[in-house]
């Protein structure tokens, strides 16, 4: 299998590389870009052109799935700014990992009242993660931002586990 690296999603959409994309505007852009690739609108005649359009269409769909999700968008932004930054920052602080382990245990043992409290706590933590991420990106501190994205994954996973329980 040939691995084709995914193109920068922001470039595919022709939008500025920022965390705070206007989501309704992004969706309109997606529809417009997709329409341009649709056979009813696109006059590609030769098979080479058809393949190119098909490929463009796939790129647009992939990019849309990245950009519409705030955390995937963040990952794409960090990779575009500093290639390999997520991989380089996989080693997380043991103190944080200890907390993540305790959190996972809390989730596993939570009764229905506990679940409600934990859901609120996790949503607050995820919001705080994203705020902090914005600040890191604004300072162009992509290494800290990458760690932040990795840490948030533990919060997102805990929330997901919690939702799966109820």
């Amino acid at each position: 299998m040939i691995h084709v690296p995914a193109p920068d999603a922001f470039a595919v959409f022709g939008v500025a590389r920022t965390l705070d994309l206007d989501e309704p505007e992004l969706e309109l852009r997606y529809l417009k870009l997709s329409r341009d690739c649709h056979p009813d609108h696109n006059r590609a005649q030769t098979s080479t052109d058809c393949v190119a359009v098909l490929q463009r269409s796939a790129e647009i769909n992939d990019a849309w799935n990245v950009l519409r999700d705030p955390w995937r968008r963040a990952r794409a932004l960090l990779e575009a700014e500093s290639q390999g930054v997520l991989n380089r920052n996989k080693k997380l602080d043991p103190m944080f990992l200890m907390e993540a382990l305790e959190l996972a245990e809390e989730v596993a043992h939570a009764d229905s009242d506990g679940q409600e409290v934990l859901t609120k706590k996790l949503n607050a933590a995820i919001d705080a993660d994203y705020q902090a991420l914005r600040a890191d990106v604004a300072k162009a501190d992509f290494d800290t931002a990458a760690k932040r994205v990795h840490q948030s994954h533990y919060h997102l996973k805990a929330l997901h586990d919690l939702e799966a329980k109820s």
Binding site: K90, L92, P94, L97, M98, A100, L101, A104, H150, Q151, H153, Y154, L156, K157
Partner: peptide
């Protein structure tokens, strides 16, 4: 020893 694999959200102590 506490280590994590952030891509899958695993923690091991």
């Amino acid at each position: 020893g506490v280590v994590g694999a952030p891509e899958c959200g695993d923690v091991m102590k």
